[in-house]
Structures are given as structure tokens and as C-alpha cells.
Nucleic acid binder design. Structure first.
Lengths: 106, 106
DNA sequence: TCCATATTTCCAATAATATGGAAATATTGT
DNA sequence: ACAATATTTCCATATTATTGGAAATATGGA
């Protein structure tokens, strides 16, 4: 993962509302949800939510597909995995003994 | 890890210069570096660097200890590990089969 | 075609962040 | 006490992010 992409993904998640949106989509993976439902659940006005969804999409953390009159947003697992891997390697580089995330403990 | 702490940590790393500072400190763990050396390596003016170090410290990603006239900053591995775990659980919650980071693959 | 509903764009106000010069503070060696 | 060096705080400026009302766009159903 490029440095730039990592910064984008980190910034996308570094915001309360966007983090909540992303988590909601993960809990509703793989089907995804429409902005209408997300906005209702999280009590976000439509323009605000649209702005945040766009930010998450640009960061590669969600994808959108049109379904008739609705749009279905889905959490992009490849995106979050890439971010986790970036942080893991970043954190461990050169000093693996200092940084053994749960997942790496045999 | 609390939601708030996660947002702080994400925001701290979601900035080019701060990410560079953190990575430099990880590469120089566990000894750490002084702001003088960091600023020289990354070509950052002292006040700018000080601001970023403070942000990283508040997010629990670095620690500072005074050493005579110098201050030694160190990467806080517990902090980055907590963030990685937060993202991993966040990402996997309810749908582990969709999200298997490298580290978790058997 | 016309209406109802879903979503986004436009836009302006507001808030939060980043930057770095100048000055302040702290510590060590003389 | 003084000079030299390290780091931080102060502060003004510039940049970027967030918010949501109003209007625009898009789609399906009557």
C-alpha cells in the first residue's frame, strides 16, 4: 500500500461519523446498506452522509453500486485489510520482536 | 480500545509528516530519537515538529522522556498494536470469513 | 407524463488543523 | 552568572474539513 493511500484511509476513518458508517457497513457485510438506511440508523442528514460516503469511497474503504432508485454501499474488505497490513508492517519493520499483534502470535 | 482513542490514533497517523515521524521512530526503536535528529532527518522546522510530536504523544503513539538537555521520543508499540487490534476486530466483527488479514491466516 | 422518493451537488458558514517565525523556557558546561 | 544549545510555547496566517439547507438529478410507479 502506498503511503498516500494509507494516509487517505487513515484520514477517512479518523472521523467519528465516518468510522460509525464504516463499522455499520461491516456489521452489514456483505449485503451493504443504502444511504437512506444508514442515515436513519446514525441520524445523519443526507448531504452530510453523502459527503462522508464519498470520502470513504475515495479512500477505497467502501464501494457503491446503483440498484434502481437506490444505491447500495458496501464495506470494502480489501481496503481495510490493506490498511491493517500497512500498519502491521510499518509497526514491525526492523523490530518484529517489539511488535507482535495478537494476530501474529503463533 | 475506546472509540475516541481509535479516532485520535487514526487522526494522528493520518498526516504525512506525522506518519513519517512515527515510522522513523519505529525504525529507531527502542532507543528513540531527539526532536533535533528527527527534524534534521525529515527537514521539519522545530515548532512544526514539536506540534506533531505532541499530537502523536496525546494519541498514545509515542512517549517522551527528558534526558538532560535533550528529549528522547520513542514509538509506543502498545499504542500502535491497540490500533491494529481495534481495526482488526472492527473489520472482522460478525464476518470473520470476509476479513482475514495476513497476520491471522493460520 | 406526472408524482413521489432516493441520492447527490451546490454553496456558504463554521470549525479544526497545519505551518513556522519570534520569543520563552530549560539545561549543561565554562 | 553567562553563553550555547535543545525544545517548547505563543501567535498569526493559511489551508483544509465538516455541516446541512436548498436545489438539482435520477429512477420507478401510477
Amino acid at each position: 500500500m502506498e503511503n498516500n493511500n494509507a494516509v487517505s484511509a487513515l484520514a477517512a476513518l479518523a472521523q467519528e461519523n465516518r468510522l460509525a458508517v464504516f463499522r455499520l457497513l461491516v456489521r452489514n457485510a456483505p449485503e451493504g446498506l443504502t444511504p437512506g438506511v444508514i442515515g436513519e440508523q446514525l441520524e445523519l442528514p443526507a448531504p452530510t452522509l453523502s459527503f462522508h460516503l464519498k470520502t470513504l469511497a475515495q479512500a477505497g474503504l467502501v464501494t457503491a453500486i446503483q440498484e434502481g432508485r437506490f444505491v447500495r454501499y458496501r464495506a470494502e474488505m480489501a481496503g481495510i485489510n490493506a490498511l491493517i497490513d500497512f500498519l502491521t508492517e510499518d509497526c514491525c519493520c526492523g523490530h518484529p520482536q517489539l511488535c507482535i499483534p495478537k494476530g501474529k502470535q503463533e
